[in-house]
Nucleic acid binder design. Structure first.
Length: 218
DNA sequence: ATGACGATTTACT
DNA sequence: GTAAATCGTCATA
């Protein structure tokens, strides 16, 4: 079997904007505790550029129990809990001590769809086994739910050789052509105010149906 | 000890 | 379109 190239430590040690752009079209792979492999192509990301970014958890050098993983080395998973019911999954980038990360907002699911559907349907009031593919991973909370990511995965090393159960596979050596990539303001950060609320730090594959609800234009 | 607040999603009028 | 759901974390007292 041919070894699929994984993103390495060096690949992750770049700035958030660069990584957010480069992750589009690459494959996120999650192996659950039961050995079930789930995967999807990353179709929407957001860059959180660090201490100067008012929308970023590490703004002003803030360092707490919740966000300390942002200060880890590039290639570390940062998973946090919000709104009392949802998790969000980020990939820490840059180097240790520089609290920068990329939020994974949406995937196009490609492997383990049954497991994802089971994970997602579990929380829906009307348990539907007919949940359409496009609703499996089209939003940051949905991504975590589908892949079974929680705070237990916070701090996991995605770049190490060992089977941490979470890594990114390089399915294209070149970045997506820019004509296929749309750029716009991040979602849900209005409270940060200008210029950060409106900064063009969200990246997505133009017109892709997997992008989070109502946000694929641009 | 207490109060306010989410990098969201779902359900409902 | 709007509003409810729901709770860990953090800042303030």
């Amino acid at each position: 079997m041919s070894a699929t190239a994984r993103f390495t430590r060096a690949d992750y040690r770049v700035d958030a904007r660069t990584l957010a752009r480069r992750l589009l079209g690459q494959r996120l792979v999650r192996t659950g505790g039961d050995g079930v492999r789930m995967a999807g192509v990353i179709v929407e990301t957001e860059a959180y550029v660090g201490v100067r970014d008012r929308a970023c958890h590490s703004f002003g050098g803030r360092r707490t129990l919740r966000n300390q993983t942002m200060y880890a080395d590039g290639g570390t998973a940062y998973v946090y809990f919000t709104y009392g019911m949802h998790h969000c999954f980020n990939v820490v980038c840059s180097v240790e001590g520089d609290p920068v990360a990329v939020l994974i907002r949406a995937l196009e699911p490609t492997e383990g769809l049954d497991a994802m559907r089971a994970n997602r349907a579990a929380s829906l009031r009307a348990a539907k086994d007919t949940l359409p593919d496009r609703l499996l991973c089209s939003g940051p909370g949905r991504v975590c739910q589908a892949l079974g990511l929680s705070r237990a995965d916070d701090g996991v090393d995605m770049a190490g050789g060992g089977g941490t159960g979470l890594h990114i596979e390089r399915v294209r050596s070149r970045a997506l052509p820019s004509r296929l990539v749309a750029v716009g303001p991040r979602i849900g950060v209005d409270g940060a105010g200008p210029p950060w609320a409106g900064a063009a730090l969200r990246f997505w594959i133009r017109a892709h149906p997997g992008v989070s609800a109502g946000r694929r234009e641009g």
